[in-house]
Design a protein around this nucleic acid. Structure first.
Ligand SMILES: [Mn+2]
Ligand SMILES: [Mn+2]
Ligand SMILES: [Zn+2]
Ligand SMILES: [Zn+2]
Lengths: 135, 135
DNA sequence: ATTGTATTGCAACTGTGTTGCGTTTACACT
DNA sequence: AGTGTAAACGCAACACAGTTGCAATACAAT
């Protein structure tokens, strides 16, 4: 796996396992709590550095769901987007992506070479809509 | 325009004019510089409060282009998305939006009611691609 | 001109994320 | 197993966007 002088520490192992088991995006704070819950007490700085490391080495990718906090998810997931519930914060996946159809068109029209894109949906999930309805 | 006790201050007037003249998204910092350049020296807090005010009252809308800073643009612009050049930072508009086609499909499949969505493109603009090429 | 209150500046604060540095730890090599 | 080295760590200090409390100021209506 890492034979370039990289080491398998307990935090690194825990994070890789977390991201491979769950396909949900996590923030640094959520990860801190998750690790604490399984008995791993680790400094915030270490988490930030590890997320940076995993991101730069292609294990995880950044996801922008909230304006002030970066989320991360496994880089092995197929290209997809997110449904973010503004009521409960739950995040679900959307597999559809019509965006790639635009790439050629945008390049021809604007000569802008798209490297990546973000597409996130904000609204109300089924559960929250139901709760609001019965109130 | 505002007959609900709201006042026309020099900052408010300047911001409304800025956003109506330019269809570019601006951050609080960019606005501070813009205002300074036309002789209006104003505290950052005031800018943040004014952006909050204009946003809550429907004059401007938030745009998420960078992970740590909120941009704002006129709320009167037609629905569109952005081409953000990762090399020079220039922001261009994209009018195409295939996303609305997904709304019904997503609701039927997931019962998730979409209120809004963000769709931003990151890559290299024509100018930067050209510069890189001749180097 | 006087007056009520919306707006402002300032200072202190919050929260995410980063950096420098001395210490600890993993692990490769003997 | 013992040891050297660099990766990884914790801690403290920092950077920076954005917020809040409060006293001072400015707008606009009388
Ligand atoms: Mn996802
Ligand atoms: Mn725009
Ligand atoms: Zn996509
Ligand atoms: Zn759209």
């Amino acid at each position: 796996m890492q034979d370039k002088g990289l080491r398998i520490t307990k935090v690194r192992r825990a994070l890789i396992q977390l991201f491979s088991e769950h396909s949900i995006p996590y923030t640094a704070n959520q990860i801190e709590k998750k690790l604490f819950a399984i008995g791993i007490l680790v400094n915030k700085t270490t988490i930030y550095r590890e997320l940076q490391f995993l991101s730069q080495n292609g294990y995880i990718t950044e996801v922008y769901l909230h304006s002030n906090e970066i989320s991360y998810e496994s880089a092995e997931l197929k290209h997809h987007h997110h449904l973010v519930c503004e009521s409960c914060g739950n995040v679900d996946d959307v597999i559809n992506c019509l965006v790639s159809e635009l790439n050629r068109e945008i390049y021809q029209k604007k000569k802008f070479k798209i490297r990546t894109h973000t597409l996130e949906f904000y609204g109300t999930c089924a559960k929250c809509a139901h709760i609001k309805h019965i109130k």
